[in-house]
Design a protein around this nucleic acid. Structure first.
Lengths: 198, 198
DNA sequence: GAACGAGTCTGGTCTGACCACTTAACGTTT
DNA sequence: AAACGTTAAGTGGTCAGACCAGACTCGTTC
């Protein structure tokens, strides 16, 4: 037995969650039941659950049970900010990385945007638009969920440190036009241009 | 008693670490001693320690004790990746995202590689080279720590799902040559070419 | 139907007991 | 004196059982 029980339990727990098709908000088996199903002591089960609770992945309510929490909420993000981003090197690279990822998303969106996407963007332009909302459209049009999650994390960090990015409305208008014609060169130029301003 | 004991313990533990002036590598009091000093059960102490261990803040060695870990090499980014990548949609985009990030790193490395980097790569080429080792060189030459962490997560998960990528030695030779001349166009072409093969 | 209450489920905590492993001390042998 | 082996103490790893506190179920009572 080289591996620790509570690590095993974490893996088994994932299996159970998948097999039972549990998702956010659902109740997971009680500690006693888990201990029995996994042939482990209740204290070991609790050690595993505590770790998950600490990360904000589950929520325990005395007398009720243990529930899966919605991922993407503040807990993990906050922890990351607290620990990882305190590393100087990571902090220094945050802005650059965010920009590179955004350029990547723009490229994907340019290739994959549909007519519906363009229309939706037109709709957004009728009202004052902010950088974050615009890029939420971009990552959606880019149709890569993983990249969307990565961008969201970087964006949250960036905002917490530098505040929101503000660009003139013309930026979004020019972007929209270029997306309509799938003019990648122009999109890239606009992005570089306004990045310098910001 | 509204607050949970293990949360209290975490706070007390932080105080103890400060008061005793403990830093990375130092040994913290044993579980039994902590339980006594904090008037808590050993199981509660363990629940707190497990959370910290899960985050990589401490390291426990059976028979020896519990030690503070170097601040900075904890696996929060890895954990974040683990939970994001657990989602089906994210999994589907894994290969594409990994490739995009890699292309991004290649671009950075092409711009920023120094003479020392090139020499180091030459050194690597004297022996059989694998994809992962090569890209570790790339991300290092790219000089973006955050991107390095992101790539590592994606790479780990890709490998766990698809196994290691194997490319002919010529690929690395061509890459090395193009890096020497900073020929980004060729680097990109080689990358696209061999990606199709893989 | 509404209000009460016993029983049962849940998580929260503590205690005590082993086990496996490491280290240090002590003694013996060479 | 140096090398070796043995022993004892300390440490994390795990389990079982007990009790507490909150929340729910459901039958009884008003």
């Amino acid at each position: 037995m080289t591996s620790k029980v509570y690590v095993e339990i974490l893996q088994q727990l994932y299996r159970i969650i998948e097999e039972d098709g549990l998702s956010a908000g659902d109740k997971i088996p009680s500690e006693r039941e888990l201990a029995e199903r996994l042939n482990a002591g209740r204290s070991s089960v609790r050690e595993a659950l505590r770790s998950l609770e600490f990360l904000g992945i589950i929520e325990t309510r005395r007398g009720e049970g243990t529930y899966l929490k919605e991922f993407g909420d503040h807990q993990l993000i906050g922890l990351l900010g607290m620990f990882i981003l305190q590393e100087k090197r990571a902090k220094e690279d945050l802005a650059e990385t965010k920009w590179l990822i955004e350029e990547m998303c723009l490229s994907l969106a340019c290739k994959r945007r549909t007519e519906e996407h363009v229309q939706e963007l037109e709709q957004l332009l009728t009202k004052p638009l902010d950088y974050e909302t615009f890029f939420q459209w971009v990552v959606k049009a880019g149709n890569n969920y993983l990249l969307e999650r990565i961008w969201r994390v970087l964006n949250d960090f960036y905002q917490s440190q530098h505040g929101a990015i503000s660009l003139p409305h013309m930026f979004y208008e020019q972007m929209a036009q270029s997306f309509q014609t799938r003019d990648w060169t122009t999109i890239r130029n606009i992005f570089s241009e306004y990045r310098r301003i910001d």
